[in-house]
Design a protein around this nucleic acid. Sequence first.
DNA 1: GGTAACTCGTACACTGGTGTTCGACAAGAG
DNA 2: CTCTTGTCGAACACCAGTGTACGAGTTACC
Lengths: 189, 189
Amino acid sequence: MTTTRRADAQRNIAAILDAAAECLSRNPAASTSEIAKAAGVGRVTLYGHFPSRAELIDAAFVQAIATGEETLGQVDLTGDPRAALSRLIESSWQLVDRYRSLLLAAQEALPPGRVRELHADPMARVERLLERGRASGDFRTDLPTSWLVSVMHNVMHGAAGELQAGRITSGQAAPYITATLLAAYTPPA
Amino acid sequence: MTTTRRADAQRNIAAILDAAAECLSRNPAASTSEIAKAAGVGRVTLYGHFPSRAELIDAAFVQAIATGEETLGQVDLTGDPRAALSRLIESSWQLVDRYRSLLLAAQEALPPGRVRELHADPMARVERLLERGRASGDFRTDLPTSWLVSVMHNVMHGAAGELQAGRITSGQAAPYITATLLAAYTPPA
DNA sequence: GGTAACTCGTACACTGGTGTTCGACAAGAG
DNA sequence: CTCTTGTCGAACACCAGTGTACGAGTTACC
């Protein structure tokens, strides 16, 4: 269907998508002009490929999720659930930190629920691991899994904020998050 | 200094401040027209009292913090640190939930750091309690206090989001937050 | 080398907000 | 009762962003 696109057009689309991810990651309110300029392309060309700013952000976000999934898919989630969670956090953290403000941009430009819809895959991965740990008695079962997922999400984004504000270093983030979440998920005595 | 203000002017200022808090709590991007209308006042009158949208938000935020501090000041923080923390969470949660999107508005309208500056008092209260619990061995000391505060902040705001999205009920929020934070703050084995 | 696909810059219409100005009018203070 | 202070609506200038239209020029493809 889209194979009929000319080669330079495909290159431009890719450049625009990359520029969008980069610009929006620096400033969630980046304008289409900024993005076009960063992609080395005219603003009109951008609108030739993406009908609106919102659809551009959607596409950039979809791409970010897809590349993230590629990384996350290589994490070994077998064995001790607590160790597996540590590994998953380590990888997820990199992604959350990188795409933090792209997420912000998506949240205010896309219809409500759309962001969550696109997060379905990564969320399911976390849920599966948590469920397994709950079944084995490693993680608490007195709180719903969805809540535990949300806690993980918020702690990570909070860490990204602390890092950006210079109150923690990039080396501290992952250990702090891991220590916090492992404790939070431990079954109460 | 401002005692020279006429009575109706003072009433209008209060009405505008209240309307600002209410409108911005529904929609962080509320316009000055909306706020003026909600206050039953002309837009010009609003600008007569507040030189800019940003200063209005600042004033509304300051007021919110002040009334919040009044509530928080009545919480008993003595005795068992874990029980004290539970009480503090219960009260703080109400405030976070109510002023959630006013905070968002402030974050994007005020210069960076200003929000944190205004948060100094409530943050100091949490810090004191955490420090006391760390000294008594009730809370972990392998992570910086500032990080623990940030975790509390983020978990609460995350809960507000879950509540707004209808994924938890208002009755569940406080217990979930308490159970999560008490576990997260427990010293590791 | 011809053709269709693509790109470019400029210019334009539109939207929605901010902050100001004006002049007439109302209300509180003394 | 008077004078100052405050209020009102309407209008205006301004800005920044979005999305569209045009026409000339370029580039890949076969």
